[in-house]
Design a protein around this nucleic acid. Structure first.
Lengths: 361, 361
DNA sequence: CGATTCCATGGAATCGTTTCCACGACGCAG
DNA sequence: CTGCGTCGTGGAAACGATTCCATGGAATCG
């Protein structure tokens, strides 16, 4: 770790450190001669400026923090990817943290991001507010929420309006004859969990469907709770004939559990999941989903954050969602019949929406 | 961004900065009195030490860099997760970078990691060596390779021995009567691409199967190349009756393409993919895979890196792989017959290996 | 009781970079 | 020829923490 400093570069170039610094940071007040000499000296020594020292003096670190609730969730993996690309475009490097859906890990990571003096933070919060998050606000560290928000914390955010998609899903299932729709919900401690659940209950009553509270299972956005939800709902005396699952990981767990039980998707049970994941279309039958554009969300989050860093107070953005109908939400079978022998799944109804994600205004 | 410094903490506590620093960094040479006063002052001001300044003076940053070739690849998402957890256990924070399977993005990220003076780097390299990687070695920055290596660069590494799994897969398919096995390979510019391809060709000849070079398609570990591979291989005059795909993303592309063509997995075409991804088991028919333990790989990589940081020169570790047979690799259909109407997939043969991943010694 | 050790403490140097300030050289207009 | 603005340059302060070193008081020992 024989680090080369700007001092050695200056010495080799035969100029002062001040001049070397000016050349290396693009300050125009330099002569062509010293520009050339410093540049070649830096190249020869393979000089890499120490970002710590640079950030210590200057105000900016040119780093953004992105804290997602679970990297293994394909939605957040995609989000990380788009955020990284967008940040890169603006000269920022992204430090990605993984809260693992746990508030303590989120706080630990937030603390290190604060310590490292990132220029701003994009946060998909877990829980309902912690000291670390309040600390963020008290220090006026530029922060935006993505995907989820926290009640009472007035920060710019990019979220999805799940209502449209959920309404479309409920109406679609109702039109297919389902009256008892099960719902595997996200945790009520998260804004998306609450909002989607509220939208679901509203749409269910609006469509005159069963509002039986036992049709709702509250999961935690992890695969295991999807399995548990299927177990609970199909164990009811009057099980649902259709199922809406509030995120992709729980959908994976739910599907695995249905497989184990020999319940055929799209035949014995209709299903729609929130979040469009590429391979959901590859399942047999392909899974109907409520889609929202992760690329737009990532780009918008970076845009908002950069505005906050520049001192602005941008308005929050709400992105649309929409139903994509595939074979898994075929018309209802007769409720209560035991699983039948495998038959080819019914032909999917004509899609009500294209697969292409909706662009934000 | 009204940052609180140790100076203000010291003032409030009524001690010198030196004492404050000692208390805050756990130096035992402090009196209980000042410990208490400094601690309460720090808490009251919500003091967060500036990691930049700390790292500037001291030698360590307590940060590791993890550079993966593609975050959206579930294998690397899982790896990121386990590495992060393991590093966390040792008090390190992980800076995750995404090379996007592109050498230029990898180099850009390596440069920022060098600039930020991370204590060590875990690298899943893209390409066959660049100036940035050579720079890493020249500076003696602790680095280990994970999943992939680069020929001629003698760094500790954790890799998977794909040979066992591929041999099992080829023998399994041969036993089922397949003689023409297609192979969608990873890029020959990557060590895993070369190694797995070499193992495949060796096993094919050993088992007396067709070594027709047109049965091999070279992809790039991205989904699109999986589709292209299916297109190329099924367009042959004598198409293969079985397919081995060298990674999970290309498998996704391949499966999508098979869907589009109406080719039934496990009926018209047997398939085995490298990398065990949770939801591959959920496909219908479930996908046979060559599994290797990503958790072991992540933990081992962190272990090796910590040894290198402590001045050691640990030996590289090779982890095992094994075939997990599921329904997608059913016995061969008659080659060349057009897709038949859907029938229930054949019952899977008895698994030759358990789903549980093999533990490293 | 005096000398010596121990220990908590504060002042100051240090890390590598940026940036303020002062200075000298130069060109140009009066 | 002198005065003034411009421009490139170097010295030194600054950023916020750690750590060496010296100091003074208390404790211990002969």
């Amino acid at each position: 770790m024989n680090a080369i400093t700007i001092r050695e570069v200056a010495a080799l170039a035969g100029v002062s450190v001040a001049t070397a610094s000016r050349v290396l940071s693009g300050n125009p007040a330099t002569s062509p001669t010293s520009r050339a000499r410093v540049a070649s000296a830096a190249a020869e020594l393979d000089f890499r400026p120490n970002a710590q020292a640079r950030a210590l003096r200057g105000a900016r670190t040119n780093a953004l923090g992105l804290l997602v609730s679970d990297v293994r969730n394909p939605f957040f993996a995609d989000l990380a990817h788009t955020v990284e690309q967008a940040a890169n475009l603006h000269g920022y490097v992204t430090l990605l943290g993984n809260a693992n859906e746990r508030a303590d890990q989120q706080d630990r990571y937030l603390d290190t991001l604060i310590s490292r003096r990132v220029d701003g933070i994009i946060l998909a919060p877990v829980g309902e507010g912690s000291d670390s998050i309040r600390s963020l606000i008290a220090r006026e560290i530029p922060t935006v929420f993505v995907d989820r928000t926290i009640a009472g914390m007035d920060l710019p955010s990019v979220t999805t309006d799940g209502t449209t998609g959920i309404r479309q899903a409920v109406e679609h299932l109702a039109a297919a004859g389902h009256t008892r729709i099960g719902y595997i919900s996200g945790p009520q401690a998260s804004s998306t969990g609450r909002d989607r659940f509220a939208a679901f209950t509203r749409c269910v009553t609006e469509n005159g469907l069963s509002a039986d509270p036992s049709l709702v299972y509250f999961g935690d956005y992890q695969a295991a709770s999807g399995s548990a939800g299927v177990h609970a709902l199909l164990g009811l005396r009057e099980p649902p004939t259709a199922l809406i699952v509030a995120d992709s990981l729980m959908a994976v767990g739910a599907i695995a559990s249905l497989h184990d039980r020999g319940v055929l998707l799209g035949v014995d049970l209709a299903m729609v999941a929130f979040d469009d994941v590429e391979w959901f279309a590859l399942l047999n039958p392909a899974l109907s989903v409520i889609s929202h554009s992760v690329a737009d969300m990532g780009r918008t989050a970076v845009d908002l954050l950069l505005q906050v860093i520049d001192g602005g107070t941008p308005a929050s953005v709400v992105l649309p969602s929409e139903l994509i109908v595939r074979a898994s939400s075929a018309p209802a079978g007769t409720p209560g019949t035991p699983p039948r022998p495998p038959t080819p799944p019914a032909a999917p109804p004509a899609p009500t929406a294209s697969h292409n994600s909706v662009r934000t205004h």
